[in-house]
Amino acid sequence: MRFVLAVLTALLAISSPLRAEQLPQPTGRPILEISGAIGRTNAPGKAVFDLAMLESLGLQELVTTTPWTEGEQRFSGVDPRALLRAVEARGSELEARALDDYRVVVPIADFERFPVLLATRRDGRPMAIRERGPLWLVYPWATHPETGDQPYRGRAIWQLRSIVVR
């Protein structure tokens, strides 16, 4: 899978006329802003993504229960590592902020330890804000129960709006 992703990312990079220097401009409503220690931007000092741009990084699936909802949920979204590669992030942690002003620092190492997913969809449909969308950093609670406890539990930020890489 990682190989496929790498190829996808590479293809995307090639298809973009600005190549390594700039990301494409979002055409839809922006849902995520990444700033801080990043190498690629599409606005002054930051990289702005709409849903399509994010999902073009490659959709993966994660079926898991969550500590807040009942039953198994089928999430799809992007591998956060692919996203970080896409903006050429140079850092060890992410300061994530949500629409409801929740803030949390997520170590990038988490994404190596667990198959974390930056979910954009549940059951194939984009998630409404009231359903913890449009972006939810989903940990594999079902397969890695320790992620249901602190500190991981708090890192599963929903209604994610912006990320500062540092």
Binding site: P67, W68, I129, R130, R132, W158
Partner: peptide
């Protein structure tokens, strides 16, 4: 309008968590 509606949604989830979820 979008930002405005966004805020409603945030409020809706907050209330849902209060009334329906473990928190």
């Amino acid at each position: 309008r979008e930002s405005f509606l966004e805020r409603v949604e945030v409020l809706l989830l907050a209330v849902q968590r209060l009334v329906r979820e473990p928190d």
